[in-house]
Amino acid sequence: MSRDVKGTYKAQSSRKEEVKGTYKAQSAAASRRKTSDADTGAGTHGHRRPTTRMVPVPSESIVPERDVDKSPILECRHLGIDFGGLRAVDDFNLMIGRTEIAGLIGPNGAGKTTVFNLLTKVYAPTRGTIMLDGVDTAGMDTPKVSQAGIARTFQNIRLFDSLTVEDNVRIGLHNQIKCGMWSGMLRLPRHWVSEKEFHDRSLELLDVFHMADNANDIAGSLPYGAQRRLEIVRALATNPKLLLLDEPAAGMNPSETSELMDNIVRIRDMFNIAILLIEHDMDLVMGICEGIAVLNFGKIIAKGTPHDIQNNPQVIEAYLGKQDEGE
């Protein structure tokens, strides 16, 4: 099996060589063309340049049909990061429609969470650009990106454990409702107005997941599934345009997972946002994701609808290895 995989890998790399070869050939041809153009240009003074035929660049990007006339919410171009000599993510191109539920899948260690960390600027990208709703996020740090409209949950739950459920959501609302330090410290009227608003809005958000009854519980004492839901509520509280869910169904049983699937779709429809999720549970991914990107060794190897992905030989190869043709 391992030899097979190695073989595949070699085959892949040799194919890459081939591709490179054609590219070289192309560029050589281009340079040849250029020189010939120059020659002809020198000869005819009236028409310095012959008319160049312009062609549309084929785009690999896909978005749901309903979002095609609106600007995409997220557009990554040639995104990449190196850790020392390791290219953790390379040439990552992705476009997400305004109300799309997108999936990012791939074998363990493919770089999925690294992509999330790049999108939220936990890591600064080595290459490429991230456009959020038409705005380049270069130079922003994590809090700025959150204010710009990307919210996320974490693979290993990160709640404010010692605070109450309601306080967790209130902290999520931090940038939605403003109240300065002095008004809080001296209990000026602004404080009371904002606290009322904090309370009402956090209960409203908790109600989305029917958690309003747990508002006064300590977040760290909640059962696992509720902690995952609270993390999503807290992320929604930041009023995002794009919600990143990192393995939302990890550790859930099938019935909890199917409830989560309904909830994810419901959130999208309620808040009218785009969702990008990383998940290993294929029932969930194939069940609710509209567009799926498959990542392997830091590169996107396939993009498409669940149906395309399921039948893509490269994806099957990445997950299961290649079958030896000789056998």
Binding site: T142, D161, M181
Partner: peptide, 20 residues
């Protein structure tokens, strides 16, 4: 207050606090 909650959020989980 809002400020104090932010301070405690940073104490409890800095990465999560930055993410919100």
């Amino acid at each position: 207050s809002r400020t104090g909650r932010a301070i405690m959020a940073v104490r409890d989980n800095r990465i999560a606090a930055e993410s919100v």
